[in-house]
Design a protein around this nucleic acid. Structure first.
Lengths: 218, 218, 218, 218
DNA sequence: AATGAATGAGAATTCATTCAT
DNA sequence: GATGAATGAATTCTCATTCAT
C-alpha cells in the first residue's frame, strides 16, 4: 500500500500531466481547429504516450470540453475580481462600461485564440458541447443584465426588454471582437472601437430630428 | 455531331442533376453538419451514383461552397426586390427598418436551417470558405451602411463610425436570429423582438438623466 | 443507368471477390486461429484492399460466420447425396454405418482443418456463433437419430433414449476425429478405428457373463 | 536478516495473494472468456495492483495455466479419494460405473464453469496449453482404461481396442456434460441421463435380431 | 515487495476519391 | 456521361506489459 507521501506526489504529478495535456491540446486545437486536430499530435506536443491521453480524457471531445471548462472558470474568476462600483448616472455608467470593457479586452488578449476557437468551432463539436457553450453565453448575458437592471431601476437606462438587450450586447461583443481580431476594423484603435460600441449601445445611432442627441459625449 | 436540340437537352439535364445534388447536400448538411455529412449519403439522397458526384463538384467542400453561392445569390436577389424608399426622418426610418426586418425574417424562415448551417459550420470548413463567408457578412454590412450613411447625411442619425456600427448591427442580427431560433427568447413574439432590437439600435438603452429620452416611440 | 449485361458482370465479379475473400479467410483462420487472425492478413492474402473487406463482411466475426455457413451447406449437401438404403437387420445396419462413416471421413479429409477450426474456436467467437454451431451439431444429431429411430422401430436397435444417444454419437464422432487427426490413436488405421467405434456404438463394451456376447461381428 | 518466523509469514501472505489472484482470474475468465478477460479486471477483482500481477505470473496465459494446474490437481485428488472396489461381474460393473459417475457429476457441479472454460477456451489459448489440456484428457482416459482392462481381463467386457474405446468414453462424457449443462437434454434427469449413457456404453444401441438383447437392465 | 501511471505497438474501421466498365 | 466497386491512407482507441517510486 502506497504511503501518504507517495500518494501526494502522484496526485501532483498527475495534475501536472493533465495540465500539460490541456496546454498541448490548446495549441493544437488553435493551430488545426477542432476537426483537424489529432490526438496523436496533442500527445506528441505534450511529450506523452498515446495511451496516456486516454487515461486522462475519454476522447478528443473530452479534452476539448475540459479545456473549455478551465477557460470558463478563469474567465469568470477574472470577472469576479472586477470591483462592482455601481454607477450613479448615465455618464458614470458609460465611463464605467468603457473602462470595464477595456480591461476585459486587455485580459482577453492573452486568451484570444482560445476564445475564438470556442466561439467558432464549439457549435460543431457536438450537441453536448453546444449546451455548455450556450451556458457560457447565458452566464455573460446574466452579468450584463445585472448591470442593465440596476441602471433601469436607477432611472438612467430606458425600460427596455432587459433580457433580449443583454443577449444582443453579448452577441455584439463577440461579433466585434472577432471582427477586430480579424483586422476588419482597420481604421480604429481598440480603445476607440470600444467607445464607439459603448456609445452605440447607450444611445443607438438614431438622433431625434430636434438635434439634441444623446450621443457622442466627446 | 450532336444537334443543337440535343445539346440543350443535355445541358438542361445536367442542370437538373446539379440542382438535385445541391438539394440533397443541403438536406444532409443540415441533418449531419458539414463534418458529419457523407458524400455517400448525399448521392444516395440525390439518387445518383457515387462517381457522379465528382463530375459536378470538385469535392465535399466544393459542393458546400456551391450551396453557399446559390444561397447568397438568392438572399441578395430578395434584398434587391425590396423597394428602397429612403426615409425622410427618424420615425420613418424606424418604421421602415422594422418593416424591412420583418420582411427579411419572414423570408429567412424558409432558409433558416441553411442559414444557421453556414453561420455555425462555415468557419470550420476551411480558410477559403471563411473568406467567402466574410464576404457575405461584408455585403450585408455594406447594405446596412448605405442606409446609415443616408440617415447621417439627412441629419436623423448620429454621426457615428458608420462602418463599425454597421458591422455591429449585422452581428447583432445574426446573434439574435440564432437565439430566437434556439428558443432563447421565449417571452417575446418575433415581431416584438424585432421592435425591441430596432429601438435598441436606434436609441440605445441609455436615458439622459433629464428624462427626455429618445426611446420607445411606441 | 447500367445495362443488364453490366449488372450481370458486376454480380459475377462480386461473387468471385467474395469467394476469394472466404478462401483467404479460411487459410488465415486455420493458420492463426480465430483470435490470432488479422483482417489485414486476410485481405492481403486475397489480394484486396483493406476497405474492400468491409464492403463484403461486417467484420471478422462476419466473415467467420459466412465461412461456416458455406461449410455447413457443403456438408449437408454431401449428406443428402448419400443413398439412404435403409438397412433390414443389425448386420446390414452395422455394415451400412461403417461404409457411410468411411465415406464421410474420406470427404471430411479435405475439410478437416476447417472443421477443426470451427469445433475448436467456434465456442469462443461469440454467443451468436455458438448458437450457429449448436444448430449444426443438432442437425447432425437429428440425422443420426433418424437412423436410430428406424432401427428401433425395425426391432434391431435397443429401445434406448434415442435423443441422448444420438447426441452422444455425434460427440463421440467429433472427439475421435480430433484424436485421430492429432495422431492420438497411432496403432490403428482409420478404417479399423471406424469399425472399432461402430462396434462400440452397436454393442458397447460389455459382455454378459454367459459369454454369448453381441459384439465383434468380425 | 529476517527471522524464520518472518519468512514464514511472508510466504503465507504470498500464498494468499496468489490464491486471491487465481480466484479472481477464475471469476473473470468464466465471465468474459479467455480472450475477453482483462488483466486489469483480474487485479481489481483481487484487490491488487496492476504491477503485482506480474510478480506472481508471467502473463495472462501464465495465470490461465496456473489456474488449470490447480484445477487438475483438485480433480485427480477427488478421483484418488474414490474407493476402487473392483467389480466382479458385468452387473456390478455397471452399477459401480453409474455410482461413480453420479459422484463425479455431483462434485463437478461446483466446478462446472471452470471445467467448461477449459474445455471450450483451452484449445484457443496456445499450443502449450493445448498440450496441457490433452495431458488432462489422457489422464482421464488412462483412468477409464484401467477399469476397462480389468473388466476385459475378468471376462465381463468385450475384448475391444481399450485405448480407443477409453478415449471415446471420455469424449462422450465431456460432450454430454456440455449438452446437459447447456440444457440440451431437457427431458431427462441427470441420474437418468447417466444411466442411459452407461447402458449405451455397456451394451451399445444394437440388438441382435433374436431379441435376447443385453440392454436396459432396469 | 507493491503499486499504478505510463507506454506504444497494434488492430479495427471509415470514407473521400479514383477508375474500370 | 454515369456508375458503384475498389481503394488505402488515415485515425482512433485498447490493453498487456514495463518501470519509477
Amino acid at each position: 500500500m502506497p504511503s501518504e507521501f507517495r500518494k501526494q506526489a502522484d496526485a501532483r504529478r498527475r495534475e501536472q500531466r493533465r495540465e500539460a495535456l490541456l496546454d498541448a491540446a490548446a495549441a493544437v486545437f488553435v493551430r488545426r481547429g477542432y476537426h483537424g486536430a489529432l490526438v496523436s499530435e496533442i500527445v506528441s506536443e505534450a511529450g506523452a504516450g498515446q495511451g496516456t491521453f486516454y487515461r486522462y480524457f475519454r476522447d478528443k471531445q473530452g479534452i476539448f470540453e475540459a479545456l473549455f471548462d478551465r477557460f470558463v472558470a478563469s474567465v469568470f474568476a477574472e470577472f469576479s475580481e472586477m470591483s462592482a462600483n455601481l454607477p450613479r448616472n448615465v455618464e458614470e455608467y458609460r465611463a464605467a462600461s468603457v473602462a470595464a470593457i477595456r480591461r476585459i479586452a486587455a485580459r482577453a488578449e492573452g486568451n484570444r485564440d482560445l476564445l475564438m476557437l470556442f466561439v467558432r468551432e464549439g457549435p460543431t463539436v457536438g450537441e453536448a458541447f453546444e449546451r455548455k457553450l450556450r451556458g457560457f453565453y447565458d452566464g455573460l448575458a446574466a452579468l450584463a443584465r445585472g448591470y442593465l437592471d440596476h441602471a433601469i431601476a436607477g432611472g438612467f437606462a430606458r425600460p427596455c426588454h432587459a433580457d433580449a438587450v443583454s443577449q444582443a450586447l453579448v452577441g455584439m461583443a463577440f461579433w466585434m471582437a472577432q471582427q477586430w481580431w480579424h483586422g476588419r476594423v482597420p481604421d480604429l484603435t481598440i480603445e476607440r472601437l470600444i467607445e464607439e460600441m459603448v456609445d452605440f449601445a447607450f444611445f443607438g445611432f438614431g438622433r431625434s430630428a430636434a438635434g439634441g442627441d444623446g450621443g457622442t459625449v466627446r
